[in-house]
Design a protein around this nucleic acid. Structure first.
Length: 149
DNA sequence: GCCAACGTTGGC
DNA sequence: GCCAACGTTGGC
């Protein structure tokens, strides 16, 4: 799951412990949250649009998907006037903090790692803020990152 | 339903 | 700040 650290970083997640992943306004990304994610699933927390893009830590899916409250909040940047209460368009899951990497796993390092071949998030032109990750790819990144205990 | 125009993402 | 990639919009 991608986030711009200026907006919300792994350190922010460490501080709050758990955060609704609000503001996703892309149908494919929504579908992954709503239809694929299960409580307990591992999350690679990726920092995008920053000096050194890469995975900076781990999270865990903490809830099933539920309607994103910000879509109904007229004062929110994520307000969607088209969305109906009885038929919400956008969903979130809560993400719980699961550790910060001692060494961030940079995008460069991931691209150079043959063990991460085929990882969707690394595909050229990929702009999806949420992509599914193979179990083996998750394990590899987690091992490279060496989470603090 | 096609597709040009436009907007957004995100690495560089 | 540039620009490739790709999603969305809207005229037809």
């Amino acid at each position: 799951m991608k986030s711009e650290p200026e907006d919300f970083s792994i350190d922010d997640l460490a501080r709050v412990e758990r955060e609704p992943w609000s503001g996703v306004r892309n149908y494919q990304a929504r579908n992954y949250m709503r239809d694929e994610m299960k409580v307990g699933d591992g999350v690679l927390f990726y920092h995008s649009s920053c000096a050194v893009p890469g995975v900076y830590g781990l999270g865990k899916v903490a809830t099933e998907a539920y309607p994103d409250p910000t879509q109904f909040d007229r004062r929110s940047d994520y307000h969607d006037p088209e969305s109906k209460h009885d038929e919400p368009r956008w969903y979130v899951v809560d993400v719980a903090y699961d550790g910060t990497f001692t060494t961030p796993v940079t995008l460069d390092a991931m691209k150079a790692d043959p063990k991460l071949d085929g990882m969707l998030a690394l595909k050229r032109g990929n702009r999806l803020s949420i992509t599914p990750v193979d179990r083996s790819h998750y394990a590899r990144v987690a091992a490279l990152g060496n989470r603090k205990r």
